[in-house]
């Protein structure tokens, strides 16, 4: 416990580029950047594949394979290949690992919509795009958001590990503390990351509650889990 008071009580830890606020902001920035980039790729692709029904098997197989890719290995691989001049070598694996959960859940969400519901929408004279936007997406929203949440879990964890390859963020306290036997830093940093991950979870749950139509959320959905 004294490690915690040492870490959080030290005024030097609260200012400057390696202080808690700066590191927290970095962690948030890198995670958000990776998640948004992954979302921009995975959501449209998942909608397209789910709506047209083409390429579904490929998505599922690729996502399963991606789950086997070791985070740390990809980070080291890209850093060795591309150098550390920019954050690109770190962002690439972050995005790469964030895409599959969003893609699979968006695809499964759209594909899992009751065909009668889809037919009824077409029968009412909606165009393909309208069916997707007004019927399929709202009904599939819980699964799409689940994909985003699982992806966010993944990204927060990977950003932590990425501190090993020189990225900033909260992982720095843990990695540097471990290397220099500064256990106050290790424990304090770990507690900060755990809290950060929990807050991200809570935010996603609130977003889900606010955006999912009540008519939809009464239906039982089975979560698809998978840590990559």
């Amino acid at each position: 416990m004294s490690w915690l008071t040492d870490f959080f009580g030290d005024p030097a830890n609260w200012s400057g580029p390696d202080g808690i606020p700066a590191r927290l902001l970095e962690h948030l920035e890198f995670s958000a950047l990776a998640l948004v980039l992954a979302m921009l790729v995975a959501v449209p692709l998942g909608l397209l594949i789910g709506h047209t029904g083409k390429g579904g098997l490929l998505v599922v197989v690729t996502a399963n394979l991606a789950r086997a890719l070791p985070t740390l290995g990809l980070l080291v691989l890209f850093v060795l290949l591309l150098g550390t001049a920019s954050i690109l070598p770190v962002i690439i694996p972050l995005v790469l690992l964030a895409v599959p959960p969003i893609l699979v859940n968006t695809f499964e969400g759209i594909r899992g919509v009751d065909p009668e519901l889809r037919d009824a929408a077409y029968g009412m004279g909606l165009t393909g795009g309208q069916v997707l936007g007004r019927v399929l997406v709202p009904v599939a929203l819980p699964l799409i958001l689940l994909g985003l949440r699982l992806s966010a879990i993944q990204v927060v964890a990977t950003t932590t590990v990425a501190a090993y390859t020189g990225l900033g963020g909260l992982g720095r306290f843990v990695i540097d503390g471990f290397a220099t036997k500064d256990y106050a830093g290790v424990v304090g940093g770990s507690v900060l990351i755990v809290l950060f991950a929990l807050v991200v979870q809570i935010v996603f749950m609130l977003v889900q509650r606010a955006t999912v139509s009540p008519g939809v959320s009464q239906r039982l959905i089975t979560p698809k889990k998978g840590r990559l």
């Binding site: 789950r67 290995g73 060795l80």
Partner: peptide, 26 residues
């Protein structure tokens, strides 16, 4: 599948199985 890939993170505390190859390479 996810356990097998996740073990490698343990390399950062010196217990990572094949993950040790990543820290060694870095």
């Amino acid at each position: 599948v996810s356990s097998i890939s996740l073990v490698s993170v343990g390399a950062l505390i010196g217990q990572g199985g094949l993950g040790m190859l990543f820290t060694r390479a870095y």
